[in-house]
Design a protein around this nucleic acid. Structure first.
Lengths: 346, 346
DNA sequence: CTGTTAGCGCTTTCAC
DNA sequence: GTGAAAGCGCTAACAG
């Protein structure tokens, strides 16, 4: 009736005795440290395997004494999504302190590759781990690789640099996010013809480009009756987004759907309401104070969201696991694409 | 440029010195143990506050030595959702072992109040914490309260007993889940008239009743043109669900939407396809092997999901935090209502 | 009521 | 190459 999932209660000492060596040697083997005869290594490894021995993390943590330091490299400037990530890190303060983890925020211009790369280089040696909202650019890639080579654990956050040797990416699959947005717009429009507008920050941003790609995929294959208009670029700014969208709305009376790929949501909403086109199906990204209000008012129909709290905590947990040499709980750290509508607002 | 979120590096000893007492006394105060003069308590408290001191969890964990044991009381019988929870606990085996946490599964008939209550009573004293998929019934409530009184930490999982003194509920807000389902059916149907069917396991189950309540709320207020038919009860069984639904489909040719509140999904899908009514908007719960397939095939339009992996891990983390007397990260442990459609399948 | 002390299971010098 | 021994910061048992 009761089935046990765990057993271990052994200690390093038990393994040492069984392998006929000392504590120190087992420790060396466990951490792949040099200076142990291959034959001894094998004997110890076998003893460990035999009992699937797991060292006690608390003891290890205590013994090594030294506190760990992580840096979060984030965009400077007022971005509500990033502010939420910071806020959630702040909420973890007690949790972090109880584990003697130091987390520092480093603000930088993540849109300028050379500035970002310089900020990263400056961190070298001072931190056990770095989480960075990265721009995908050769010099940034090089900076990340340098950190990795110096032994620092690196995770990319929200925006990935897949070509780098970063240890982990904490964020969503943006192509799938775009596909999801497309499916929502298509289904919620509920009619087979009409035009669909896209407002993005810039097609040069990897995440925006990927979302648009996914969106178009679904539109083309599943809603052939809906025609997608050329992408507008609002640079994630309210005024500019409003401006370009207002113009487009004036030119096309038969726009039935709208996908806002990045920020600038305020402007998009204003353009819609000023034009008296509230019935347009409007899908955007992220749950912020603003999008929450728009969802409640029925102006926005759905938001695709990557839970910033989860991202912040996942980044910390992944860095910690990497630093400790523990395995990462893939499933736990995977960031899901949330569909948020009025009734399931978190 | 760099802003630090944490500082602590003090130890109990530092606090002791500053308060002019010994280690042991600080320990007593920290854990609200009796036998300390009120005045001394105050002095120590002040020293702790002054530095917002956080004891080192690893040291505490190590010092107390004893391993912790948790029990998961789950429904016997083949329920894919519950099997997933078990599977995720299995994946955590290494993580659990490294923390010397023992997790045991206890299968029981959670639908029979007296059997469930007896199972819970039997656990008393043997475990530090218990997670239970609970039926809301007086004798179950009493059993939970007895465990709590005996010092065991108790969390309800998936299905709550709000009237008990359980320490925490790990699961979704089922009324909101029902509302979400209602909004999805209404929006995806995309027309203003027609009938909507509901298939539930039993209206006697609290979670099912709450979901139906939420669903009807939204239907009545936002989609007045859609008329909701009386609830069918399929007892979460495939054959029975198929049977009752097939009959209903025969009686009403104008059914445009369907909400499957519980399990029995296989039967529901079969009834729809046998009747050639694949165009009906079909919204159900949970992502399983089956619902995943139905979503990909376009038979199901959306699944409301409570991430079983998250629930399993949240239950363990909450029990651990409770046992250690640490605060719970509310935001992290809150279970979200996920809307899963084809393109954001996890 | 309060203090002293012996570990918990690792990591890390420092010797051999 | 390998081992012995001194802690890491707490908890708990035992003295006083």
């Amino acid at each position: 009736m009761a089935e046990t999932l765990t057993t271990t209660a052994l200690t390093l000492k038990d393994i040492a005795r069984e392998a006929g060596v000392s504590l120190a040697t087992v420790d060396r083997v466990m951490h792949n440290r040099p200076g142990v005869r291959p034959d001894t290594v094998r004997r110890v490894r076998e003893a460990i395997e035999r009992h699937s021995f797991q060292p006690h993390v608390a003891a290890a943590e205590l013994a090594r004494g030294r506190a760990r330091r992580f840096a979060f490299v984030m965009p400077s400037g007022p971005n509500p999504f990033m502010q939420q990530i910071e806020a959630y890190l702040g909420e973890m303060a007690g949790w972090l302190a109880a584990r003697r983890l130091g987390v520092e925020m480093v603000a930088t211009d993540v849109f300028d590759p050379s500035v970002l790369a310089a900020s990263l280089e400056a961190l070298s040696g001072d931190y056990d781990g770095v989480a960075v909202v990265a721009l995908d650019h050769p010099s940034v890639r090089a900076a990340i690789n340098d950190l990795v080579d110096a032994g620092t654990k690196v995770v990319t956050l929200v925006s990935d640099v897949p070509s780098s040797r970063r240890h982990h990416y904490v964020g969503i699959d943006n192509i799938a996010a775009g596909r999801t947005a497309g499916a929502l717009v298509g289904r919620l429009v509920g009619q087979s013809s009409g035009k669909v507008a896209i407002v993005a920050g810039s097609q040069g941003l990897r995440d925006h480009a990927e979302r648009i790609f996914g969106f178009n995929q679904v539109m083309a294959s599943e809603f052939p009756g809906l025609s997608v208009l050329p992408v507008l670029e609002g640079r994630d700014q309210d005024d500019r987004s409003e401006q370009v969208l207002a113009r487009l709305l004036g030119e096309h009376a038969d726009i039935v759907g709208l996908y806002n790929v990045g920020a600038g949501t305020q402007g998009v909403a204003k353009a819609l309401s000023d034009a008296g086109r509230d019935e347009v199906v409007f899908v955007g990204h992220d749950v912020t104070v603003l999008t929450r209000r728009l969802l409640l008012q029925g102006v926005m129909d759905a938001a695709i969201s990557q839970n910033p709290g989860h991202e912040a905590r996942a980044a910390v947990r992944v860095l910690l696991a990497l630093a400790r040499g523990e395995p990462i709980l893939r499933e736990q750290e995977k960031i899901r694409i949330d569909i948020v509508m009025r009734d399931n607002l978190p």
